[in-house]
Amino acid sequence: MSHSDGEPTPFERVAERETSRTDYYREILDRNVVAPLRILISDTRGLFGIGSILFFVFLGTVGVWLTNQPESTQYILLPPFQDAAHPLGTGRYGNDVLLQLIHSTPFMLQMIAGGAVYNITMAVIVGTFAGYKGGRIDEFLMTIVDMIIAVPALPLVIVLAVIFEPTNPIVVGIVITLPSWAGLSRALRSEVLSVRTHSYIEASRTMGLPTASILRHEIIPNLMPYIMINFVNAARRVIFASVGLYFLGVLPTSGIMNWGVIMNTAYETGSLYTLDTAHWIILPMIMVVWLSYGLIMFGQAADKVYNPRLRARHATTMTQETARTEEAES
């Protein structure tokens, strides 16, 4: 290469002054955090989803810190909305249902996060790698995936639960959804197969970028809407599986407080058959449905966050000029 003499070519240009780092980071923050958030809350579903999730997080942190552990009291099976001291009533042992629900939240949230993150990570790594690499690697990985899919999930989980008796919420989350990443990774793989036909992937390969970098920068961002929806679904699967398994009493319940356990206790003390105790089992159910619905709404709205058109429109650092072009285009 011989452009050393005379005028520097644009290629040899270096900065005349330091770009202010704060400016740069402010812009990154704007594009990656502020703009997506704005898109999310500009949508009713997103607002509801984010609101619900924040509410539960609040409950599980500040709420736990503010309130006492539920204890047995003399008021047994108090119906809700009767006593200001126990707004949601009490259970058979006289413990406050509201407090029970609040103090179950941290366990639920940790379990959900553990299970969902584990599933998505496995699925994304295996699915995208197999899809992008193709050939032998793909065949090998997909054979394993197919074998996992072929194992019936429920019996496996029950067996594992009985053997390991997990009590740590994160471990519980992982155990109860152990094989479900396999189906997801297969679905992701086929998405990758279609993304990888784009010529920008070939361009990146021509530039000699390493596989991990191509996956991270070129492939996964394009699958994000899909991954988000599946993340939400995985989270919901953790909730339902845990509630179901605790309710059935498959998982160890002693010393653990979560919504499934509450329902299990309520059931075992016969509250399914009398109306007086119905609140004891219905209230945790409402929590389950609410959180699950909030997650669905969040997932649907998150779809929009990954739409570059919307993202560009909501970034404030975008110049007037660009904004106008945008307008003219639409």
Partner: peptide, 8 residues
């Protein structure tokens, strides 16, 4: 198709 639609 030659540039990633998700990136500036």
């Amino acid at each position: 198709s030659a540039i990633n639609p998700n990136r500036t």
